[in-house]
Simulated scan of single mutants.
Amino acid sequence: MLRYLIPAALAASLGGLAPSADAQSEAPSQGHWALVVHGGAGVIERGAMTPDREAEYRAAMAAALSRGEAVLESGGTSLDAIEAVIHGMEDDVLFNSGRGAVFTAAGRNELDASIMDGATLSAGAVAGVTQVRHPISLARAVMDNSRHVMLQGEGAETFAREQGLEIVEPAYFFTERRWAALERTLISLGLEIPPRPEGAPAPTGVDHGELDRDAREHRFGTVGVVALDRAGNIAAGTSTGGTTAKRWGRVGDSPIIGAGTYASNASCGVSATGTGEFFIRLTVASRICALVEFQGLDLQAAADQVIMDELTALDGDGGVVALTPQGDIAWSFNTPGMYRARLSEGGEPVIAIYGDEG
């Protein structure tokens, strides 16, 4: 449960090193880009994950940084970097976002996403989509090409088709381990297991030890990014499949502006992962930014106050990544681990999983 604010130039390896107190106050100069990414939080502990699986997650987080770096280094916008990073994570079965998302109690993958532009406070969000390959791009299309902020369900998918976004069959999102996790959860809840989705591949065996690890480690597999471009503009984005066996059209914090995502050039950008009901009640993302803007807290202190104090007091769990227009980066989480990574222009990447690494 360690939280750090670390200038990239001090990172000594992909695992990172804790900075000195003096180093924590440093930030990249004006005109430098920066990027911070998360891939979900949970009971992620050393020894509970196989070395191969750990390597896969570190590689996936490194690839996410590389996609964002390619956009920002070439002079691209923070919004473009958000899309590029999350596209890859939505296609990666390691994460609970897009392909590899968890199933609802009805046996569907219902996807949520949001994006926000810190320069204008424009925002877009979608909830409960089932056929859009990249929900983050649909959220951006809502922001850029509609007069609304949030669309949901069939209406969101109609808009996606009108915008020419890629549409896939629902079975595209299917993975065997997420289906097995649904079956296990429904049995524990005494609920009926729905028919296997049409078009899903033939059943294959699943390692039950892996399911046990997933239940602990991937309780929150939401992905998110905050980016700063060379023009000094912040953007944030978040994408998720929600929670296993969610019912009645449940929507969490990820597509709710101010709860799971927020960005303002006047303060900071935040993307969250955790038990959405608590993040909604606290408006976690905008609350952190408000503490920075109106109470003058530094970014790490603001993130820790909301996550370690206020969220914990409600018995909520999860974490955030955050970034200011000055290039300060912070993350905070009250779970044993969170998949996270950061990179600033001219520095070295820091990739971390467990609570005892930077």
Rank of each mutant, 00 (worst) to 15 (best):
T335R: 10
A352P: 01
Q305T: 07
D212F: 00
E176Q: 15
D91L: 09
F279P: 06
A119S: 10
T185G: 06
D22R: 03
F278W: 09
F220S: 10
L79P: 00
A106Y: 11
T240V: 05
I329F: 01
G276C: 05
E176D: 09
R3I: 01
L121C: 11
E166W: 05
G39M: 14
S13C: 05
G98T: 08
Y4H: 13
V226R: 01
L14C: 00
I256K: 00
P197H: 14
L94Y: 04
S13E: 14
Q131S: 09
L17V: 10
A119Q: 15
L282S: 04
T77N: 05
R219V: 13
V225I: 13
D317Y: 11
G39A: 05
G258W: 05
A181F: 02
L121A: 09
Q24C: 15
A235N: 01
H38C: 09
E217W: 15
R178I: 07
S239E: 13
G327R: 14
L311W: 09
A84P: 12
R177H: 10
G118H: 14
I351A: 09
H218N: 07
G318A: 15
G337M: 14
L323S: 03
A11R: 14
A156D: 09
A27C: 13
R219Q: 11
F173D: 01
A63I: 13
L10T: 08
E217R: 12
D91V: 15
G237H: 02
A227E: 07
E183L: 03
A62M: 06
R250N: 11
I193F: 02
I115M: 10
D22V: 12
N265S: 05
L5S: 15
V129F: 03
T185W: 08
D112S: 05
A60H: 12
L138M: 08
A352Q: 11
G42R: 10
G258L: 05
L314E: 10
Y354I: 00
G76V: 03
F95K: 00
